[in-house]
Design a protein around this nucleic acid. Structure first.
Lengths: 202, 202, 202, 202
DNA sequence: AATGAATGAGCCTTCATTCAT
DNA sequence: TATGAATGAAGGCTCATTCAT
C-alpha cells in the first residue's frame, strides 16, 4: 500500500470516528463503516479486518491530535494557572456537551468488554496524563498564590473523576449545560473559594 | 398472573440480574437468560416481552432492594451522619470492587445506546435519589456539627459524580483498592477536615 | 430433541444425500441444503452446524443401509458363487451408471481434502469390506469348481481397484454402458475363461 | 503475445501446477497463484482469463511433458516390452506415492464438478493415450514372446483402470508402497505368469 | 402456562474479477 | 504490459422473537 492507500486509510479512520462517535462501539457494524465511507464491503477489509482493529486505530490516531495538543499549547503560553484550568475545564465541558459523543461512549463500551492490560489501555493513559497536567497546573497556581490546595495530586484526581463521572452520566442520562457548569464551578471553588470562575461562555 | 407467576417473575429477574452482572448488556443473549433460569425460550416471553423490558425490569427491581434498603435502614437508626456517610461510601466501594460488575457496566452499555427519555431513565432517578439522600445526610451532619459545608446539594452531587467516575473507571481500566480509598477519603476530608474517616475495612 | 426432531433429522439427511449426490461435496452450501429441505437457514443449524458434519452424518447413515444389506442378503441365498459375483458386479455397474452420483464423487472430494485417519475413513472400510466379501466369494467359487484362481485375495483386490477406477473415471469423464460391460467381463473372464457371464441386463 | 510473453506464460503455468498439485483445485485461490508467481492479480489475467482456463491450461501442458516424453522416449529405444511396461508402471507408482498430489486430486475435483464434453476432457484423452500405448506395448510383447495375452486392448484398459483406482484410492485413503507393489505385480503376473517383474526400486 | 422448534433478518468474511492508472 | 485497489456476489453463522402444540 503506497501513499494513496494512506490517504484512504485516513479517510476511513475519519469516517469511522464519526460513526463510533454517533453509535458507540457495540452497535457499529462493518456495514455502518462501509456505508459511511461509501466503499465496498471488501474494500474496507483491505484496510481493517475487524471493528476491533478499526476502533483501536481510531483511538490511537485520536490521541495524537486532540487533548495534548490543545492543552500543551495552552500550558506553554503566559496565561495564569487559573486561566489555564478554566480553559481545560471549558474543553472538557465542550466534550461533555458535544452532540456526537466523541469517543467517550465507544471507549467505555469497548473497555468494559475487553480486558486490556492496564498499560495498553488508552483510557488509562489519557486519564493519567490529564491528572499529571492538572496537578502541575495546581502546583503552579499554588505557587503563584492563585490557588489554595494542600494536596494537588489528590485534588487533580478528584477533578478528573468528577469530569469522568460527568462525561459518562451525561452520555447515559443526559445532563444540562447548567448542571455541568454548577458542578465544575463547585470543584473550582474548592481551589479558589474567593473567586468565581466563569466557564459559562462556550 | 397470579401469585405463582409473581414468584417465577422474581426468579427470572434474579437470574437475569446475575447474568447481566457477569456479562454486561450486549453480550447477553436470550439463551444465556433461558439457560440460567432453566426455562424455555417461549416461557421467558410470557413474563417479559423483550430483552429490553427484561433488562429494564431488572434495573428497577434493583433499586427496591439494594441501596435504598441498606441506606434507608441506616438513616432511620441512631447513627451519626458521619457514620452513615462512611457506611454509604463503604457500600459504594464494595460495588466498585465487586468482581461481577454489578449492573454498572450493563446499565451504561444499555443507556449509552438507547436514548431513553430522562424521566424514564432509572439510572437518572437512582442518581438523583442518591444525591438527595446524601444531601440530607450532609445537612444533618452540618446541623449536628459533624460536617462543615456551605453547599450541601453541590457537595452531594460532587460526591456522586466522583463515585460514578470511580465506578466506570474501575470497570473500564481497573483501579486498586488503595486508589479508591484515597479518592473517597479525599472527598470526606473536604467535609470534615479534622477527622479521618476510616473506610478501609470492607 | 425428541422423537419429532429425529424424524426431521432423518428428513434433512435424506435431502442432503440427494444434494451431495447431485453436486458433490465442495459445491454444496448450507443454502443448497436449506433450499432442498425447504426450511430456514437457522433451522438447519439446529441439527447440523456445518456441511462437514452433515456430510459425515450422511455417510454414516448410508453405510447402514446399502451395500452390505443387499449383498449379504444375496450371500445367504443358495445361489452359486458365479451368480453372486455377477450380482455384485451388476450392482456396481448400476451405481457407476447412476445419474445422480450416489456419494462417490462427494466422498472422494471430501477425503481428497480432509486427511482422515485411515481407520475412521469410511471409504477405506467400505473398500476393505467389499474386498473381503469378494475374496470369500472367489474362494467358494474355487472350491465348487466354478472359478480358477491361485490368489483369491489379490484377485479380489484387483477387482475392486478396477471397480474403483471405473467409478471415478465414469464420474469424471463419462463412460458408456458398453465400456463398463467390457471391462467387467474382462475381469470375470480372468476367473472363468470358458464362460461368458452376462451382466448386461440391468 | 511475443516470445517474452510465452516465457512468462510458461512460468505461470509451472508455478500454478505446483500450487494445484499441493492444494487440489477447490482450495486454490487466485491469491495463491499470484503469490507463487510473484506477479500482480491483474497481470495474471493478461495471460489467463479465468481460474478455469488457467487450470485447463496447466492440465494440457502437463501432457506434453511428462508421460509422453518419458514413455515415448522409452518406446523408441531398444528396450524389451517387459522392460518398458515395468518402466511405465514404475512411473505410475512414483506418481501414486508422490507427496504432492500431482494433478490427480485437482483434476478429479475439477472434472467431478464441471461437466465437460467428453472430447474436450483432457483426463479422457490422457487415459486413452495411455491405453493405446500400453496396448501397443503388449502387442509388441506378445509378438516377441514375452507376454501372453489374447486381448491386448482389454488388458491395457484393465491395467489403466487398476492404476486409476490405485491413484484415487491412495489420495483419498492412503495406501502403502507394499500394497501398490502387490497390486501392480498382480497385474503383471496376469501377463507374464512365469516372470516376476521387479518394480520395487523407485 | 409452558415448550422448544422454526424463522429470517442481519452481521461477518472471502475471493474471482475488473479497471483506472 | 503491469499493477493492485476496489467491487459485490456469495457463503457462513447467530439470535431475538414467534407459534403450533
Amino acid at each position: 500500500m503506497g501513499e494513496k492507500s494512506d490517504i484512504k486509510r485516513k479517510f476511513i479512520l475519519d469516517k469511522a470516528r464519526e460513526v463510533f462517535s454517533e453509535k458507540g462501539y457495540k452497535n457499529v457494524t462493518m456495514k455502518d463503516i462501509v456505508d459511511a465511507c461509501d466503499i465496498s464491503r471488501g474494500g474496507l477489509y483491505l484496510y481493517f479486518s475487524s471493528t476491533d482493529e478499526l476502533f483501536l486505530s481510531v483511538l490511537s490516531t485520536e490521541n495524537e491530535e486532540d487533548d495534548e495538543e490543545t492543552i500543551t499549547a495552552a500550558l506553554t503560553g503566559t496565561a495564569t494557572a487559573g486561566d489555564m484550568l478554566a480553559l481545560f475545564l471549558k474543553e472538557q465541558k465542550k466534550e461533555i456537551l458535544r452532540k456526537k459523543n466523541g469517543l467517550i461512549v465507544a471507549s467505555y463500551e469497548y473497555f468494559f468488554a475487553k480486558k486490556v492490560s492496564v498499560k495498553d489501555n488508552p483510557l488509562k493513559s489519557q486519564f493519567d496524563t490529564a491528572v499529571r497536567i492538572i496537578e502541575r497546573l495546581i502546583e503552579n497556581g499554588v505557587e503563584s498564590g492563585e490557588f489554595y490546595c494542600e494536596n494537588p495530586l489528590g485534588c487533580a484526581r478528584n477533578l478528573m473523576y468528577v469530569v469522568e463521572g460527568l462525561k459518562v452520566t451525561s452520555k447515559a442520562v443526559g445532563i444540562s449545560e447548567e448542571a455541568i457548569d454548577n458542578e465544575l464551578m463547585y470543584v473550582l471553588q474548592g481551589l479558589v473559594p474567593e473567586e468565581l470562575n466563569n466557564i459559562n461562555n462556550q
